[in-house]
Structures are given as structure tokens and as C-alpha cells.
């Protein structure tokens, strides 16, 4: 029987996508050593030089440290409370022409998967558009949508949903 041969063959072509990770690429930043918080130990014989404070990256403080913009259900307009964050990143991009970001659009689990990929892209595009209006260059900004596929919170209630309807700003070059 043809069907059986087909089924038997199916066990062979297992294809693995190589070199992929399920988490979006995050800029890995060497965390500053917590020198100040080391507990006092037995007295040492040599005096320790106080560590010079690492040069603070402006992206790690204030509004620029905020990288997530949340949205209302089925909406893609940027809410008032997040406009300052978007503007701050736009200003940074404008001041650092070599910097590049990817904006990831995400949705909650309600609605169909492919529709949500469209909605996530609208969210990412809305952030991109506001940034370019604020002086960032369009070529500094990529957008991508993962729809409902990469939730932050795994619950099935408004609390989880509200944390999943988001745009995430990821610096690929600083």
C-alpha cells in the first residue's frame, strides 16, 4: 500500500533548524561587578584600590532603560504614558547615527495567530513611525512581529494579556 510506504518514509526526513534560539537576541551587556556590596571579609594585607566607576551607558538608566511599550486590546496607538520612552529612544538614535534597533511587536493570545502577527507588526510600525517623526532615521529601525507566539506572561487572564500586548525595543548596535 502506497500510504504505508509514505508513512514509513516520514520518519526519515527530520529536519532540525540549526543555530536558532527561541529567545529574541538581546544585547548582552557585561553587568558591572557589584564591588560595593561585597561583604566585609577578613582584613587583607594590601590596600584595595577603589574600583573606578564603570562609564555609565546612557541606555542603562532613566527613560532609555525602559524598552517595553504596552498596548490596549486590539489597539496599536501609543498610549500617553509611553510617549516619553519612545521619544527618548528616538533622541538617542538621532544622537547616535550608528545605533540600530529592532522593534518587536507582540500580542496577547486572543484572536488568530496570523492576524495577531499583523497586529504585532502594526504595533512595531507605530513605534517606528513615532521615532522617525522625532528625528530617528528609518534605516536605524527594523521591525518584526511575533504575534502571540512569544508571550511574556503565560496566564490566560487580563493581567497576563496586558503584559503580552507590547512592543519591545532591542538595540542591535549602540
Amino acid at each position: 500500500m502506497k500510504l504505508f510506504k509514505l508513512a514509513a518514509l516520514l520518519s526519515i526526513p527530520v529536519i532540525f533548524a540549526v543555530g536558532c534560539e527561541s529567545t529574541p537576541e538581546q544585547p548582552t551587556e557585561a553587568a558591572p561587578e557589584p564591588v560595593a556590596e561585597k561583604p566585609a571579609e577578613a582584613p587583607t594585607t594590601t590596600a584595595v584600590e577603589p574600583a573606578a566607576p564603570a562609564a555609565m551607558d546612557p541606555l542603562d538608566s532613566g527613560l532609555l532603560a525602559k524598552r517595553t511599550i504596552y498596548f490596549d486590546f486590539d489597539k496599536y496607538n501609543i498610549k500617553e504614558e509611553f510617549k516619553d520612552v519612545v521619544k527618548a529612544h528616538a533622541q538617542y538614535l538621532s544622537d547616535h547615527p550608528g545605533a540600530k534597533i529592532t522593534i518587536e511587536g507582540h500580542c496577547d493570545e486572543r484572536g488568530t495567530r496570523e492576524y495577531n502577527i499583523g497586529l504585532g507588526e502594526r504595533r512595531a510600525s507605530a513605534i517606528q513611525q513615532m521615532m522617525t517623526l522625532q528625528g530617528a532615521s528609518a534605516r536605524q529601525i527594523n521591525t518584526v512581529s511575533y504575534g502571540e507566539e512569544r508571550p511574556n506572561a503565560l496566564g490566560h487572564d487580563e493581567d497576563a494579556w496586558s503584559r503580552n500586548r507590547r512592543g519591545e525595543i532591542v538595540y542591535t548596535s549602540r
Binding site: A7, L10, V14, I15, F16, C20, S22, E149
Partner: peptide
């Protein structure tokens, strides 16, 4: 019965 893997990935597959 008789589940066979067609393809696997660490990233999303849809539709």
C-alpha cells in the same frame, strides 16, 4: 496513531 515528525525547530512554525 503513528505520529511522524515532519520537521522540528527551536523557532515558531505556523499554519
Amino acid at each position: 496513531y503513528n505520529p511522524q515528525v515532519v520537521m522540528q525547530s527551536n523557532l515558531e512554525i505556523l499554519s
